[in-house]
Amino acid sequence: MRAFAGRADHQGVTQQTGRRRLTAAGLALVVTLVALLAGTGCVASRQEPGQATAAVADALAEAGSAGETARIAVGLLDEGRVTGPVADTVLLDQLRVLDDAESALTTLVPPDAATAARRSTGLDAVGDVSDAVVAARSWVAVRSGGDLAGADGVPSSSDDLLVELATALDATDAALAEAGGP
C-alpha cells in the first residue's frame, strides 16, 4: 500500500514536473513569438485614419533620411573625401531603405480618401527620391571608371545630381508636412 502510495506520489510529482515543464515551454514560446512579432512588425499596415497617416509619415521620414544620406555621400565623393566603393555602398544601403519605405506605403490600406491622397503623394515623393538615388549610383559608377556612355538617366555632373536630389527631398518634405510630420 505504501509502495502504491509512493508510486502515486511519484506520479503526482512527475505530473507536476511535466506540467511545470509544459508551462515553461509555453512561456518560452510566447516570449519568442512576442519578440519575433515586435521585431518584424515595424512596418505594419495601419487601418485607423490617424495611424495610417502616421504610417505615411514614418515612410516619408525614412525616405527623407535616405535622400539626405545620398546627398551627403554625393557631395563627399565630389569633393574627393570618400572613395567610390564607400559612396556606392552608402547609396545601395539607401536604396534598401527606400524599398522598405515604398513597401510600407504600397501595403497600407487607406481607411479614407484623405489618407489615400496622402499615400499617393507619399508614393510619388518616395519614387522621386529612389530615382535620384539610382541616378546617383550611375554617376558614382561613371566616376569610378564605369562605361555608361549613352545610358539614360546618368547625370552629367554632381551639380545636376544634387539639384535632382534637392528637388526630390523638397517633395518629400512637403508630403511629410501634409502627413503631419515635423
Partner: peptide, 16 residues
C-alpha cells in the same frame, strides 16, 4: 540633416 542611422555605411560619413 534628419538622418536616422540604419546601416554601417552611414556611421562613417561624419568621419569622411
Amino acid at each position: 540633416a534628419g538622418i536616422e542611422v540604419s546601416s554601417l555605411s552611414q556611421i562613417v560619413l561624419p568621419v569622411a
